[in-house]
């Protein structure tokens, strides 16, 4: 299974994502520059965190027009696995691949600490190795992670099971609607989340709860393509 980690000017979690793929599942992974116009070689695409284009205008607003984003859209439409983390989540919402938007944290502070999340939907390709309702420890690091969508969209997200992660009750760090920490599209193959699973892949980092996002997507891909392919 081949992974692409997209790199924009200002991405800063790209190396962590690359290493996380290597360390957790040992699959081939490449950095792909934002000017790339072909992602057909990849089975999964990670849009990493950071401050793409300095977060000028709005987080993700400029990155969404990078040439590679047309290819990310194509990959998403083909059912390939797309994971947007932090700034990557912001970019996917700006690009319209996921609904809603990430606003300034309610308390205006940049929050950088471990966060307890509830796995709300364990039937996405990225969460199948978790138990439904399980509480996991995955750190956050953002100033604009306050997920917002209108009531109609929220009702749709809830009804379709598109809420993937919620902050543990009473521990919402940013004021997001319905304590949302991560969502997916209707097809379940595109997931966006503010917490950083790539920073939680070893007990040395304080938690290894993020590991299963990578093992999950590998097992989803193997199931789809037959277990014998590519180890």
């Amino acid at each position: 299974m081949r992974f692409a980690v997209i790199v924009f000017p200002g991405s800063n979690c790209d190396i962590d994502c690359y290493k996380a793929v290597e360390e957790t599942i040992g699959q081939p992974v490449d950095y792909v520059w934002h000017t790339a116009t072909d992602l057909s070689a990849y089975d999964a695409i990670i849009v990493p965190g950071g401050f793409s284009y300095g977060d000028y205008l709005r987080c993700g607003a400029i990155a969404r027009f990078a040439p590679v984003m047309n290819e990310v859209r194509k990959a998403a439409e083909e059912g390939k696995y797309v994971l947007g983390i932090c700034n990557g989540f912001q970019i996917l919402t700006e690009a319209g691949l996921l609904p809603g938007v990430l606003l300034r944290n309610r308390e205006l502070k940049f929050r950088c600490h471990p966060a307890l999340l509830e796995v709300v939907n364990n039937e996405t390709p990225f969460t199948r190795d978790y138990a439904k309702g399980e509480i996991v420890n995955i750190p956050i690091a953002h100033g604009e992670g306050n997920y917002y969508c209108d009531e109609e969209t929220l009702a749709k997200l809830e009804a379709n099971g598109q809420v993937v992660f919620r902050y543990k009750a009473g521990e919402n760090p940013n004021g997001s609607v319905s304590d949302i920490a991560g969502i997916c599209n209707e097809g379940r193959n595109v997931v966006g989340m503010m917490p950083h699973p790539e920073r939680a892949v070893s007990e040395l980092l304080g938690s290894s709860d993020g590991k299963r996002m990578f093992t999950s997507v590998l097992s989803a891909w193997r199931e789809r393509h037959g277990a014998t392919v590519n180890g």
Binding site: L57, R58, A61, I62, F65, E94, G100, V101, L103, Y148, C149, D150
Partner: peptide, 8 residues
């Protein structure tokens, strides 16, 4: 297209 995000 760019200057405003009309969702919010």
């Amino acid at each position: 297209k760019l200057l405003a995000n009309t969702v919010v």
